[in-house]
Amino acid sequence: MIALLLRDLRLATRAGGGFGLSLAFFLIVTVLVPFGVGPEGGTLALIAPGVLWVGALLACLLSLDRIFALDREDGSLDLLATAPLPLEGLAAIKALAHWLTTGLPLTLAAPVLAVLLNLPSEGFGPLTLSLLIGTPALSFIGAFGAALTVGLKRGGLLLSLLVLPLYIPTLIFGAETARRGAEGLATETPLLLLAGITLGAVAILPFAAAAAIRVNLR
């Protein structure tokens, strides 16, 4: 399992691995929004938590179809399925590797990019915390979606449509945490609900993803 995690991380950072893709997309969104909305600081501060969360979510979505599709194309998935590695573990490791290469960098970049959106200083902590807690759910839900569409050629469109509704609760509670933090309100309740979503996704979805892979390999 460690070998698989290390391989996925190594592949992500090699040429064409897509490590920078999500980060670059996130950067583009947060740089462009002030130009689109206008330079008025109050407006930007108001929408900053939401924009940052939506940006992070879409950036995450961008790299989902790589999770299993690349392994399916070159035959690795067949070989891994016959290897002494449970498919549930495979799905969990793949989701973890996706989080380490997208969710975690996005979380670390968010406070820096939040400056561009004039986020009030008290909002930085809650924003980072909400992304740290919420983005694993995005990766695990996404891995499930990727497993469902792994047999399809160019399944990216279907994958996005399947996964987007599942992302909405994470987005609502994540952005709510960041917004409340920026306004100096208590953030415990949305943060706990966000953590609940993440824990549920981490606990259940690897099994669902493994079942979907089994069906798709036939």
């Binding site: 391989r7 040429a15 691995g17 392994d71 035959g75 070989l79 016959t82």
Partner: peptide
């Protein structure tokens, strides 16, 4: 068992 199918399961960048 060890299975070897039509595709070799190689990663191009490794």
């Amino acid at each position: 068992l060890a299975y070897a199918g039509h595709a070799d399961g190689l990663k191009a960048t490794l």
